[in-house]
Simulated scan of single mutants.
Amino acid sequence: MTLIIKIGKVFLSVIYGVLKCFPVKQNQALFLSRQADVLSLDFSMLKDRLTEKMPEIRIVSICNRLDDSKSGIIGFGIDTLRSMYYLATSRVCVLDAYWPAVSILRHKKSLTVIQMWHALGKIKKSGYQTLDKESGRSGKTARLLNMHENYDYIIAGGSAWNPYYCASFHTTEDKLVNIGLPRIDYLLETADVNREKVLTAYPEMAGKQVILYAPTFRRGIDLKWEPLLDVIDFDRFILVIKGHPNQKIICEHKGVLLCPEFQSVELLSVCDYLITDYSAIAIEAAILNKKTYYYLYDYKEYTEKNGINVNPFDSMPGCAFSDAVPLMEQLMSGAYNEKALADYRKKYLPKELGTSTEKLAQLVVDQLQ
């Protein structure tokens, strides 16, 4: 494998050397995503704002949610070659995950790379923090692939997360820009509209309290969330489950809704309570002041195999549980720790909410001028 990677890097470098002979297009920005096959909410909002601020801008988007199938690998290989041409001819590249061609290749000095990571914080360990762990990547392979190198800026959430961004990306704090993601603006601006849309589609939610369960992705760890079904009073509550895109949940319980047509950022508008674990959706919920509980049934296993940066037992006292029974007893009692949520918001959210899209767009425009 090591030899194959080294040969591949040389091959790509030779091709890229030729592509760099093409002239740079001054108003061109490249968007790269491995999170989905279409532009994410954050990218779409950034694109719209950039077009408003700079009508002459040319935005090229390449989105490829790589899967392990043969066709998926071939397709990603083609998109990698496409991305190399646009990396050679663009002034700015914005990406939301690791993209091999960005980190492996040596770029023109005129190119600015902005890593717009796809989460608002670093609750769980990731990147360099998890190398050679059971739920992480091979350290040898990651270093051969120059993981997370060549970034000029990294978009981050509140400054309390900075040490973990630095550790995850193996970078320095001067590259971090603590402005948050466009989805913050979306959550604040569309809460009422989204609530109306969801209730129109699922009118049964209007008569009950809604619990949204949204667990994080577990690599090599089984989901064991089902005990929640035994302790929820479905006469009082509706449970909406939103599994991670990489680890979807199937449930046919009559009191459970999956709402496949809605994203989690839309469903947050209608929930009365969020139950999660190590997922950054907790930060999104904090933006809307949603009462959040943490169901950490695999705390010991998860911390050993993956690791966490912020322990919910400490960051949200009275809201984190390893067992479903006391969790639901506390939820149904109505005695929520409002102070813990207020302290969490103050510590972990960006200082200024509602301006993330504008600030990110201005950062891109500044690199184009």
Rank of each mutant, 00 (worst) to 15 (best):
C93W: 02
K20A: 02
R65N: 15
F76P: 00
D79W: 08
G75V: 03
S83Y: 11
F43C: 05
M45V: 02
L66P: 01
V24H: 01
K9T: 10
A36L: 05
L32C: 10
T112R: 09
L120K: 02
D67W: 00
V60F: 01
M45S: 09
V38Y: 04
K25F: 00
K6F: 08
L32P: 13
I73Y: 09
P55L: 02
I15T: 08
V10W: 12
L32W: 06
V113H: 02
I73W: 10
M45T: 03
F31G: 12
I7Y: 12
L95Q: 10
E56V: 06
I104G: 05
D42H: 02
P100I: 11
I15F: 10
T51W: 00
M54L: 15
I57H: 06
V24S: 04
N27R: 04
R91H: 03
I57E: 00
I78Q: 04
V18Q: 03
L46D: 06
S13C: 04
E52S: 13
T51Q: 14
V92Y: 09
I57K: 06
D67C: 08
G8I: 07
R34W: 07
L50Q: 09
E56Q: 13
A97I: 00
C63T: 13
Q28S: 10
T51I: 09
M54K: 06
V94P: 06
D42L: 06
K109W: 00
L19W: 09
I59A: 07
I104N: 06
A29C: 15
R34N: 12
L46W: 09
S40Y: 02
S13L: 04
V18M: 14
K47N: 09
A36D: 15
G8L: 13
L12P: 00
I73H: 05
M54Q: 11
Q115P: 12
H107P: 07
K9F: 07
F31H: 10
D37M: 01
K122Q: 14
Y98K: 07
L32I: 10
R65S: 14
P55F: 03
I114F: 05
N64T: 06
L120A: 13
K70G: 07
S40M: 12
V102H: 03
S83G: 15
K25Y: 02
K53E: 13
L39S: 11
I15K: 06
M54D: 10
S110L: 01
V113M: 01
L120G: 11
S13I: 05
L87Q: 14
L87A: 12
L95M: 14
I73D: 03
S71N: 08
E52L: 11
V94D: 08
G8V: 07
V94G: 09
W117T: 04
K70V: 13
D42V: 07
S61W: 01
D79A: 10
R106P: 00
R49T: 12
N27F: 01
L87M: 15
G17N: 11
R82S: 10
D37G: 10
V24T: 13
E52G: 13
D96W: 01
V60C: 12
E52V: 10
I74C: 11
R106C: 06
L39V: 07
F22V: 01
N27A: 07
T51Y: 04
R58M: 07
K6W: 08
V102L: 05
C63W: 02
V24C: 10
F22A: 13
D96V: 04
M116A: 11
Y86K: 01
V14R: 08
L41Q: 12
I78H: 05
R34I: 04
F11I: 14
Y85G: 02
L46I: 08
P23C: 02
S103V: 06
